[in-house]
Design a protein around this nucleic acid. Sequence first.
DNA 1: AAGCTTGACTTAGAATTTCTAAGCCATGAA
DNA 2: TTCATGGCTTAGAAATTCTAAGTCAAGCTT
Lengths: 192, 192
Amino acid sequence: MSYKLPPLNALRAFEASARHLSFKRAADELCVTAGAVSQQVKSLETSMGLKLFRRLPRGLLLTAAGESYLPSISRAFHAISEATEGVASVLKGRQLRLGISPRLKKYPAIDGLRGQGEQLARLTLTDDLNRLLEGKLDALLRTSPQSPPGLHVDRIELQTSSGTPLPATLVTLPGLAGCREHRALLKRLRGA
Amino acid sequence: MSYKLPPLNALRAFEASARHLSFKRAADELCVTAGAVSQQVKSLETSMGLKLFRRLPRGLLLTAAGESYLPSISRAFHAISEATEGVASVLKGRQLRLGISPRLKKYPAIDGLRGQGEQLARLTLTDDLNRLLEGKLDALLRTSPQSPPGLHVDRIELQTSSGTPLPATLVTLPGLAGCREHRALLKRLRGA
DNA sequence: AAGCTTGACTTAGAATTTCTAAGCCATGAA
DNA sequence: TTCATGGCTTAGAAATTCTAAGTCAAGCTT
């Protein structure tokens, strides 16, 4: 017996947009551009054959259909989230616990993290891979490109004041690689 | 307030696989290959950092984690499905327009439909696939197992008075397959 | 009223994800 | 033993999704 389900990623875009009443803010939450969210929501509306939002020049309004749809969908996502955290304890923490090699602390990209990015990750000055392996940390940002097998690795170029970028490595627990917080962190380290 | 969600399409692959305890049958339900399902489930397991299935040479078993995970996920998908049908049902308020081959009209299972099932579907005696393709009908119950490509097909065993069941085929417009009314109809045709 | 800002939209093309196809391997059935 | 089943893996193809760039209308500010 098979359910009939709408496109789930589009549904997620709808849910976030409806909560924020803004494609822009939904996009930030989902770590994509507003255009992507707009497209997703439109594809959902097409697949359902009805409009979920009124588009105003400065923002969004839910249609009656959208308004009656939102609560059940939010509840369902909430339930999925709870259930997932219930079995996969790795994902429980709200913040990423990020270790930063002391050699890197002076760089402006890192200061960016300490400032407004403070809610992105809880920072600790350390270069000790064992803390990662023991589960005391979720990710570790270091200069050495090496890492034990089994861990997820991302290469990064940190912006320096001198202009020449400094290669660094973000080593992450496998269960966390690719999760929203991880993607947001990467984006900040690379982009800003 | 942002949820932490696993990859939703992978989650769907897990849900179907767990219900069927088989990647193969889940793949059939999702209309993809077993390899695709296998990959999706593996990616979910990786992202959660745990195993959801024991892979046996001939089939699947849920791990403890998988077993405790499944019910909530099924419930959530079910809720999404219901909510979606609630706002978007093409059929909202309407009945399924069901064509029935004249060769089948005498069978008791069909009489059951005519009686109390009258609110389940509006019946027409016909075996003409063109009426379906033209959108004059939503579904067609017939003895011939054939159907043009693109239509959804369900195999059915009709109960006869003689005791030997009669194979029949329910051909449905693709947009309607799996909707609430369709499921209810199938259930009645099969169950009662 | 002109100019700036915001936040929606559209589109092409790029990037990423997901699927298929094909072959492999272990088990159980004939 | 040999076949059928149903897992798995992989490369490459196909499809989806994202970004980037540009447009438009409305509400500020001056």
